[in-house]
Design a protein around this nucleic acid. Structure first.
Lengths: 139, 139
DNA sequence: CAGAATGGTTTCATTACGCAACTCAGTGGA
DNA sequence: TCCACTGAGTTGCGTAATGAAACCATTCTG
């Protein structure tokens, strides 16, 4: 099924590598829970949203949970879904750096004190910043 | 044109949020340079590969460069393309954690000394690890 | 120079996506 | 209780994207 079945990047892209899944996860992290909530935030077509919610649920990124007080069922991120946080953040930071013209306004990710989240950078165990030139894939 | 014009995540997903673009970038980081090289590594259809290489080039992630000794032109990552390193790494690490059965073999990212790259985690300026619960998007 | 390899393009069938209309169950107010 | 309303999808259908395979023009290579 995969070109390279042992590559984690390929598997991840196979699960969330489309136009909408990551935006659904983004909005779930930002508090979206209901069908219409997702639909209005993303602007996705309703049938596609239904399909993506099904797939994300089937793959264990989302789960349908009972709402507290007799309300309708809602979608919530599972632990695996929450764990995409670092992916969303790096995507966001790349976009901030490269997808906007100079001076063009865009939203910014801040921590609970309002401080801008500094760039996420992969490092080796001793803290040395890494790049594609200083890393390799071991099979 | 954009899904959400001010969200960096949406813009980034608009550029590379499909089944193949990220795999092309992954392979470029792993040394792929020629058309057939990309085609064989990813298994993508040739017409789609041509289209993606055009788009990635148009968006400034790849550039066509003259090869050293009168060889054919090749594709190389631009600085913006190289800067996707953190995105690829977080996708890879998520996949390692969640897209494989226990004990199922997969490739691993190592630094130049062969040490496994530790999990990338967003932090606030003081080094505190962050999650979706401790961050928010400021418009 | 002939043959092979490279880097695509074209054609056509299949699939995915997007929009609008429709269904259906569960509130919610009079 | 009755019935309108909202939320959560599903269905139908037209358009766009994708994939497989064949085809073509340069560029190497012997």
């Amino acid at each position: 099924m995969w070109t390279d079945p042992t590559c984690p990047v390929a598997r991840t892209v196979d699960l969330i590598g489309d136009r909408w899944s990551l935006l659904i996860v983004r909005d779930a992290m930002d508090g979206a829970r209901s069908f219409t909530d997702f639909q209005q935030r993303t602007g996705i077509a309703r049938n596609i949203l239904a399909d993506r919610l099904r797939k994300l649920t089937a793959h264990g990124l989302l789960a349908q949970v009972e709402a507290p007080s007799g309300k309708r069922r809602q979608y919530a991120l599972t632990a695996a879904g929450q764990d995409l946080f670092a992916v969303i953040v790096t995507l966001r930071q790349w976009g901030e750096r490269h997808a906007f013209e100079a001076g063009e306004p865009h939203s910014v990710l801040v921590d609970e004190h309002g401080a801008v989240v500094p760039p996420v950078v992969p490092t080796s165990p001793d803290g040395t910043p890494l790049s594609s030139g200083t890393t390799s894939v071991r099979k």
